[in-house]
Nucleic acid binder design. Structure first.
Lengths: 187, 187
DNA sequence: TTTTTAGTTTACCGATCAGTACAGAATGTT
DNA sequence: AACATTCTGTACTGATCGGTAAACTAAAAA
């Protein structure tokens, strides 16, 4: 196999950065070329389906990362540890609020329709994994579901607010609040 | 004054709808013409500054609506009533989660840089108005600030999650939770 | 009724869009 | 060395982008 400077897998994080910065519609091919350092020929070689395949690959990569770093710890670790691992991973991944959630951003406009399955799956999987851990922590089923949904809401909202204000504090406060809220049923 | 089918003010909500659906970059002039029923010439007659002025006008209209329906009630009404008015207005405005917050959406990508002042102002004004009401409800200053930021986060996040899941429940639950949380200091 | 102003339509501009074609360079494999 | 495969750069396509120009219609003001 021939192999030059980059592999397909190496390009995906760079594409992710571009989609995060400009959104799906705003990420033109020329900007994607610029960010990746690849010409159109190379990009279309790796992603024959064009921009849609590139964004799909980015979403797949994100999903994969969360599966390993967040969802499986929630599933398999003792629940308190799993929740702790989730919060640590989330804080690291979103760089304390300086980095946005691409899946959440895609959900807000009509890009959602194009990637409805991926967007819905990401949040559904996360919600179910967290709810399961909370149930094992002693929350009643309905309460665990509600708390899990609320936690995802708070994280997404904190990312919006931190970006909007150019200030990490909303995100940091949210992680702190979640650390307290998700410990024991007696919230 | 000559006056045909539409006034400038009548066009702004239609533009808002387009920006909400497609985002700033995705809302092309042809789509804006389609949604408003106006030709390019008419649009540029009303908004000589082009797309940027259109989006600016939309943000101004939103800001104005929230000023009257949310911020001023928070400032001037008895605090419990003000908070109640805010939650009712928010629930109505966002149509129980089916409608997104354009300001939040703009905050997520590089559109934020273009409208940094409007985006920051919207959330700052809201946070301060809510914090003031909470202080008058008996919350300590720092706690009121924290609660206000958290409330805005929860609302924004609920909009993301409701859109992502195609389900009003996260938003409805959030309004319910906020109704309880923002009543008395003994949360 | 004539004039002025307000608003609309249409055609057009250069730039950029997503995507294609293809020749050639880099890297195996034999 | 010869060859095949993988990758890259460049030039191109037709379509659409945001924006402009100007002739035009409608209606209010004189």
């Amino acid at each position: 196999m021939a192999r030059l400077v980059a592999e397909r897998a190496d390009v995906i994080p760079l594409l992710a950065e571009a989609f995060r910065a400009y959104g799906y519609e705003g990420a033109s091919l020329s900007r994607l070329c610029e960010k990746t350092g690849l010409g159109k020929g190379s990009l279309y070689h790796f992603f024959p389906g064009g921009k849609e395949e590139m964004a799909g690959a980015v979403l797949g990569e994100i999903s994969h990362w969360f599966e390993r770093q967040v969802f499986q710890p929630l599933d398999n670790l003792p629940p308190a540890e799993g929740v702790g691992a989730m919060l640590a991973a989330v804080d690291a991944y979103f760089q304390s609020g300086r980095r946005i959630c691409l899946v959440g951003a895609f959900a807000l406009d009509d890009t959602r329709d194009r990637f409805a399955m991926a967007v819905n799956g990401y949040f559904t999987r996360w919600q179910q994994a967290l709810s399961g851990a909370l149930q094992r922590l002693g929350f009643a089923d309905v309460e665990a579901d509600r708390h899990a949904r609320a936690a995802l809401s708070m994280i997404q909202g904190a990312l919006v607010l931190s970006r909007a204000l150019g200030n990490e504090q909303p995100f940091r406060d949210t992680i702190t609040a979640l650390t307290a809220q998700l410990r024991l049923p007696g919230a």
